[in-house]
């Protein structure tokens, strides 16, 4: 077990370094410097600016500086707004994005699992078909389309919920709805199919024979095993939700990290792009790591070994 965790930990570090390196070299292969757009600056000012951000150094020195900045977690000032450091942006944007992400994941998990269980219990019944049609629809409608639809209905036509920004619980309803529907649909489908499989097994019959209440059988006996496939795809779902926040934050004008990320790309703001990318990928890779560990802890049938594979 410890061996496995150590191995996964190293893979995690390598992945983050790979992303960081990739980001660095990709950013520096873009023609044009971030200062090109500022007209009227003399050559001397230009050179001074580049010296300040270390852009006049040879590439390997810049790379070393960059790796150092990752390790010390200090990405320096933004180029577009020099009075703000990248850390400022992250510490301002991250709590909001984090809140959105956590609420979305919880909503998707709770409602998706509930829907899946109900569908499995009413297998081939009307409710089952209804829930599964709803689930395929949820997978098929892109989150940005759903976002505009819910704004149109709830905010513009009915005027019952605010359409933008992020300040009160009422503001959180629509973005969460738009972002959580897709993952919820995926979870519901998975829960249903694994629940159907589990419910036919002998130990469930045994539990029924013991005279346990159906509720207790579902919650205590069936659900535990039925959740395994859901846990495996949780990492992918979290990745999807994370990138989904870019577009949701754009549509709902939420001042989260995704907004800074998209803006920084349009502005060629190297420190911000690199900072946010590395930050995003570290969170994501860490989540995948946690999911893997959780999975191996939850399923006693998996004998972990350092070799991996079959």
């Amino acid at each position: 077990m410890a061996k496995y965790i150590v191995k996964r930990f190293f893979i995690m570090i390598i992945t983050v370094l790979l992303i960081a390196t990739l980001t660095f070299f990709l950013m520096h292969s873009i023609p044009g410097s971030p200062f090109n757009q500022e007209r009227g600056t003399s050559e001397a000012v230009q050179a001074n600016l580049e010296a300040f951000y270390g852009l006049d150094q040879p590439l390997y020195v810049q790379y070393a500086m960059y790796i150092k900045s990752i390790i010390t977690f200090d990405f320096g000032p933004s180029i577009k707004n020099p009075n703000q450091t990248v850390n400022d942006l992250l510490s301002r944007g991250f709590p909001i994005s984090f809140e959105l992400g956590i609420i979305t994941i919880l909503t998707a998990l709770v409602s998706g699992v509930t829907l899946g269980i109900i569908a499995a219990l009413r297998h081939n019944g009307f409710i089952d078909y209804l829930a599964m049609t709803f689930a395929v629809l949820g997978i098929s409608i892109p989150n940005f389309v759903l976002a505009t639809l819910v704004i149109q209905q709830f905010a513009v036509n009915w005027g019952i919920l605010p359409a933008a920004t992020w300040s009160s619980p009422a503001h959180m309803v629509l973005p969460t709805l738009a972002l959580a529907t897709g993952p919820m649909a995926i979870i519901a489908r998975l829960t249903r199919s694994s629940m159907l499989e589990v419910l036919t097994q002998d130990y469930i019959k045994m539990a029924k024979a013991k005279g346990l209440t159906p509720f207790r059988i579902i919650i205590k006996h069936a659900l535990k095993n039925a959740m395994m496939p859901v846990v495996t795809i949780l990492g992918t779902l979290i990745a999807g939700i994370l990138t989904g926040t870019f577009v949701i934050e754009k549509i709902f004008a939420i001042p989260g990290m995704g907004k800074y990320f998209v803006d920084s790309i349009n502005n060629r703001d190297y420190p911000v792009i690199m900072g946010t990318t590395v930050f995003y990928s570290s969170i994501l890779v860490f989540m995948l790591f946690l999911v893997d560990i959780a999975y191996s802890l939850l399923d006693p049938r998996i004998k972990l070994n350092a070799k991996g594979g079959e």
Binding site: I11, T15, I19, L22, T23, M27, I30, A239, I273, S281
Partner: peptide, 17 residues
């Protein structure tokens, strides 16, 4: 290792470049 790369992030970076 590649699986850990957030794919939309990679896609966005490549598009920028």
């Amino acid at each position: 290792i590649l699986y850990g790369l957030p794919y939309l992030l990679v896609v966005i970076l490549l598009l920028v470049v």
